[in-house]
Structures are given as C-alpha cells and as structure tokens.
C-alpha cells in the first residue's frame, strides 16, 4: 500500500475510533459524574470530555496535514492549487512564496507577544490565552496581505527590494485597523481598551524592530522551514475551524433558548423596564460575543438573530 493510502486509512480510522471513543467516554463520564454528585462518592480525577475529544481531533488534524504534505510531495495536486502554493518564478521546488513564510512568522510572533502580554496583565500563565485561534487569524490575514504584496511586486518591483519594510508598514496598518475595529464593535471598557491599545503598540514596536533587523539579512529560508511554517498555518486554520464551529453551534442553541423564553413572556412582562434593560444588555453583547468568538461559521444566522432581538425590543 502506498504512503498516501496508509495515511488516508489512518485518517478515517482515527475519525471512526474518535467518534466511538468520544461517545463511549461521554456515557461513562455521565454515569460516574452522576454517582459522584448525587451520592457524594469520591474518586480519581477524570480527564474532561473536551480533553478526550481534542486528543482525537488533534490526531486527525495531524494526519490531515501529513496527507496535505504527501500530496504536495507527490505533486499530484490540481493546477489551481499548484498556482497558489508554489512560486512559479522560482520553480516548483520552492513550496510557498517567500511572502508567506515572512507573514506567517510575523503572525506567530505577534501571537506569542499577545500571549505574553496577557500573562503579564493577569499575572499568571493563563492557558485560555494560549489559543490556536489568534495564530490562525493572524496567519490568514497576513497570508492574504502577503499575496497582495506578491501580486503588487509584479507591478512595482521595488516592493521585492524592501520586503521587510513593506511587511512592517502593511502589518502596522492592519493591526491599527484591527484594534480600532475591535474597540468600536466590542464597546469595550476604557481599561480594557487601554490594554488592547498598549498590547498592540507594544507588538507593533517589536514587529518593526524584527523587520528592520530582518532587512539586514538574507530573505532566503531553507525549504524545510517553509514546510514547517506552512504546516503550522494549515493546522491552526483547520483546528480553529472545527473549534469555532462547535462554539458557534453552542452559541446559537443558547440564543434559540433565549428567543423561546422571550416568546413565552406576556405583554406586561415585556414592558417591564428592568426586563427591557436586561434584554438590551444581552442584545448589546451579541456583536461582542460574535466578534470575539464566533467569526467563522453560520454567518447568515447572526443577522437573523440580531434582527429578531431588535424587532422584539421595539
């Protein structure tokens, strides 16, 4: 059996095994937890359901990345994919144009700084801040900007000569826009805003320094580094896609329950000022929650829900 065959078989095997194991573990955990809560029994601390689920998800994603690289290695990808993943100017032996790794590297670096900044802010190493999501988001944004610059290079050749400087400028502009957008859309408190701006400007300064230092050195990287960075980007993207989809489904089921509860209210209850205030607050939090956690899937559902609440509040 070919390498690709083994990888594909392993991938589907992990999916099936994972589905079975998660289902079984959920049932087992449900029984154990019930007996511990109701009867007050004590026992060993069990891994959470999310941990078990994440383990199989991780295994499946690793296999998926391996399949992707194997496909690249075999060069049997479609022409359209080949166009986006290879730099034709340099030949097919160089996977991913140089812009991609530069921008990806900046994304990962920026995320690390964000994480450290969060740790300082909360005076502890919070695992919550160590999300894959920020990496994926940065990588996607930066890769998109990277491609834009790559295309611009064909129009303005000077772009290629000042790669690091251009990267820094574009990155700074993106970061400022991003922070401003977050500030407006999330309606954050002043103190939080201050932290957000502080963090962004600290990151900007570091990125600028990195870019200027980088401009003194060669912009070439060995192909293996490009492979690693590309793999990380893809892994982050896939992982986050699944994670945020699950979160989105949870969010909308919660929202549906709220809508149902609202529909049960009598007219008199709806006119109650305190209740109105409560609902207005919930409504004002919707864009924030969506903006912070549920960017990916079911985008069409959000305007629908927003319209529902706005209609009901009138």
């Amino acid at each position: 059996m070919s390498v690709m065959g083994i990888l594909l078989l392993s991938f589907f095997g992990v999916l099936l095994l994972g589905a079975g194991a998660c289902y079984g573990y959920r049932l087992l955990l449900s029984r154990v937890l019930l007996s511990r809560i109701r009867d007050g029994k004590r026992g060993v601390k069990l891994p959470s359901y999310t941990t078990v689920f994440s383990f199989f998800l991780f295994a499946a994603l690793v296999l998926l990345v391996m399949i992707f690289f194997q496909a690249l290695y075999q060069r049997d990808m479609p022409e359209s994919v080949k166009f986006f993943l290879t730099d034709q100017q340099w030949g097919y032996n160089r996977i991913l144009p140089r812009y991609l790794w530069v921008f990806t590297l900046v994304g990962v670096f920026d995320w690390l700084l964000h994480y450290l900044f969060d740790c300082v802010r909360h005076k502890s190493f919070r695992l919550n801040s160590f999300g894959v999501f920020p990496v994926a988001l940065h990588v996607i944004l930066l890769v998109a900007v990277g491609y834009l610059l790559y295309l611009l290079e064909h129009v303005i050749p000077a772009f290629g000569d000042h790669l690091y400087l251009c990267t820094a400028i574009v990155y700074c502009a993106c970061a400022v826009l991003w922070t401003a957008g977050k500030a407006i859309l999330c309606k954050r408190r002043r103190k939080e805003l201050l932290w957000d701006f502080g963090r962004t400007f600290f990151t900007l300064a570091s990125v600028l320094l990195l870019m200027f230092l980088g401009s003194f050195y060669s912009r070439e990287l060995p192909p293996v580094a490009e492979w690693i960075v590309g793999g990380c980007a893809l892994f982050g993207l896939l992982f986050d896609l699944v994670r945020s989809s699950v979160q989105t489904v949870n969010f909308f089921s919660e929202l549906r329950a709220q809508e149902e509860e609202f529909a049960k209210r009598t007219q008199e209850e709806r006119e109650d000022e305190a209740f109105k205030g409560e609902m207005k607050e919930a409504l004002s939090q919707l864009p924030q929650r969506f903006f912070l956690h549920y960017r990916w899937a079911l985008l069409w559902k959000f305007p629908h829900s927003l319209a529902f609440w706005e209609r009901e509040m009138k």
Binding site: R26, L29, S30, L33, L34, I37, R38, S48, Y49, T50, F53, V246, Q247, N250
Partner: peptide, 16 residues
C-alpha cells in the same frame, strides 16, 4: 438541588 439530578451530560467547551 444535587439530590434531584437525574442526568449530567458533559459538553464541549467546558460545560455540563
């Protein structure tokens, strides 16, 4: 009331 609990189902995203 924990004594009235019939079923507990673990869910993804740190919830029960």
């Amino acid at each position: 009331n924990r004594k009235k609990l019939v079923k507990i189902v673990p869910a993804l995203g740190s919830r029960f």
